[in-house]
Simulated assay, not measured.
Amino acid sequence: MTRRTDVHPDPARPGVGASLFSTWRVGNPLRQRQTVEAVAAAWERRPWPADGLLAYHVYTGHDTASLLHYSQWTDEQAYEAFARTQRLERVDEIDTAVPHIERLGLGRYRHHRSAVREGDRRVPGCIVVVDIEFDGPDPDRQRAWVDAVLDALEHEPNPHPGGIGAHFHLSTDGTRVLNYAEWESAQAHLEALAAPGNGIGSATDRWERVQTWPGLKSSVVSRYDHVLGLLP
């Protein structure tokens, strides 16, 4: 069976071989709520679809118009089998309940490295997704950039206390890095952005290196609230 949970996922969970992220544009806060309800209904009325799906979570965007979907799989093959045989019936039910959802694509990632405060048991009040795109595929560059960010975090002279954890994922096509960052609140993240420096972090040489990395094409920051967790 399928059960609902309010517990946030562990992005560094052992056994996760594929982390899939997708964004839906639904238009407004009412349609956000309606779509979440439709997703829950479509999943809870059916058996859990596959042993290879470990968890599925949905988040509402602070832009009041989008939803983020994050699913954890044992591997991409498990997702492909689900997509061939069981995905369409769920999508059709959701689209009947809330027509005209715009699906912006599926990102395929693998968790790479995490930075968390040791012993920190706070429940995140806000999830911040940082989507980094490079000008072409280069797995070595992906890993080197993450290493540079973690080095800058380790040597940050004024870390904001609202940060809980940062979980870096590498896209399987070699072009993107996604940081699933856990924050105490949206206000804490806004305060960190407003502090001196270009983005999160002080105006140090290490952060400047991160922000001016060769081939860095774009960096998009989005804030979300966790609203639905589904587990077997």
Rank of each mutant, 00 (worst) to 15 (best):
R13M: 09
P14K: 04
G15P: 04
G17C: 09
S19C: 04
L20K: 09
L20C: 07
F21L: 14
T23L: 11
W24M: 09
W24R: 09
W24H: 11
R25D: 12
R25S: 12
R25M: 09
V26Y: 00
G27W: 03
P29H: 04
Q32L: 09
Q32G: 02
Q34R: 15
Q34C: 13
T35M: 01
V36C: 08
E37P: 03
A38N: 01
V39H: 10
V39M: 14
V39L: 14
V39C: 09
A41D: 12
A42L: 05
E44A: 10
P49K: 13
A50C: 09
D51Y: 05
D51W: 07
L54F: 07
A55Q: 06
Y56I: 05
H57C: 12
H57E: 06
V58E: 02
Y59L: 12
T60D: 08
T60C: 09
T60F: 01
T60L: 09
G61H: 01
G61R: 01
H62Q: 08
T64W: 04
S66K: 02
L67F: 01
H69L: 09
S71E: 10
S71V: 00
S71I: 00
Q72S: 05
W73D: 01
T74C: 11
T74E: 15
D75H: 09
D75Q: 06
E76K: 07
E76Y: 10
Q77H: 07
Q77W: 05
A78D: 05
A78M: 03
E80P: 06
F82K: 04
R84F: 08
Q86M: 11
R87M: 13
E89R: 15
E89F: 02
E89M: 13
E89A: 14
R90M: 12
V91A: 12
D92M: 10
D92F: 06
D92V: 11
I94N: 03
D95F: 10
A97Y: 00
V98T: 08
P99G: 11
I101N: 03
I101T: 00
I101R: 11
E102Y: 05
G105V: 01
L106G: 02
L106E: 03
G107C: 11
Y109P: 11
H111R: 12
H112E: 04
R113T: 07
A115I: 11
V116N: 11
R117L: 12
R117H: 12
E118R: 15
G119D: 07
D120Q: 10
V123R: 14
P124R: 06
P124G: 06
G125M: 02
C126Y: 00
V128Y: 01
V129Q: 12
V129W: 03
V129A: 13
V130N: 10
V130I: 10
D131K: 14
I132C: 08
I132R: 10
F134Y: 14
